[in-house]
Amino acid sequence: MSVPLYQAKAEFFRVSGHPVRIRVRELLRDGPLPVRESLAATEVESSALSRRPAVPRRSGVVSSRRDGSTVGYALAGGDVAELRRAARRVLAERVAGRHGLLDASREAEPAKVAAR
């Protein structure tokens, strides 16, 4: 039985949306990284961190590679990195828009006070 595309998209974003998973993907933007090197940056326990990439790995967001006892993760491709960059642009625009509204509100406030 095939899954509708909208459900597949929802699942993709659901498994990608955990804050620790997002932080791990940010750390991977510069290339593959062993799990032990990302522990300090994410400030989570070793067992919790090693579980976090498993779900995105199954979803095709990250890939893993074992070298002896070391497991390293990397972004699964250019599209995943582009999606991360697109999300950053969207959020930056939202923040800029909010700051613009706040600035406009502040500029309008003195005029109201002076009019009284």
Rank of each mutant, 00 (worst) to 15 (best):
V71F: 09
R88A: 15
G77H: 09
R57N: 09
S69E: 13
R52H: 13
R66G: 02
D79E: 15
E11W: 13
V15T: 12
L49K: 06
D103I: 13
E26N: 11
E26G: 04
V35D: 05
L33R: 15
L5M: 07
V55W: 04
R85V: 11
E45C: 06
G60T: 08
A92M: 10
V113C: 00
A8Q: 05
L91E: 02
G77S: 06
E37R: 14
R88W: 10
A40C: 02
T70M: 10
A8D: 01
V24M: 15
R36H: 10
S59G: 06
V24I: 15
V15E: 06
S46C: 03
E45A: 15
V80L: 10
L102A: 13
R94E: 13
A81K: 02
G77N: 08
L101I: 03
A40P: 05
A8C: 01
P32L: 10
A74G: 02
A41T: 03
V35F: 04
L75T: 10
D79P: 00
R88T: 13
S46D: 11
E37N: 12
L5Q: 09
S2V: 06
P53A: 06
P4D: 12
R65I: 07
V80E: 14
A76K: 09
R58V: 05
P4Q: 05
R85P: 02
P32Q: 03
R21V: 11
V71G: 04
L49V: 09
L83T: 14
A115D: 02
R94C: 05
A114D: 03
A108Q: 13
H99A: 11
P32H: 01
L39I: 15
A115F: 08
V15Q: 06
A86T: 11
R51S: 00
A48G: 05
G78V: 07
F13P: 00
A10W: 07
F12A: 09
S64T: 08
R36C: 03
A111L: 14
S47H: 08
A81G: 10
L101Y: 04
A111V: 14
L5R: 09
F13I: 04
L49T: 06
R58A: 15
R21Y: 02
P110C: 01
E43D: 14
R88Q: 14
P4G: 05
A74W: 00
A48D: 11
L27N: 06
A86V: 08
V20Y: 08
R116W: 10
V62M: 13
L33Y: 03
V44N: 03
A108K: 10
R66C: 03
S38H: 04
A104K: 07
V55P: 01
R57T: 14
R25N: 11
L102E: 13
L49G: 08
D103Q: 12
R23K: 14
A108D: 12
A10K: 12
A10C: 06
V95N: 02
V71W: 04
A115Q: 02
R65Y: 01
V15L: 14
V3Q: 09
R89T: 12
G31C: 01
E82A: 15
R51F: 06
E109H: 13
T70A: 12
K9Q: 03
E26I: 04
D67E: 15
L102T: 09
T42H: 02
V61D: 00
G72F: 07
G97P: 00
R106V: 09
V90N: 01
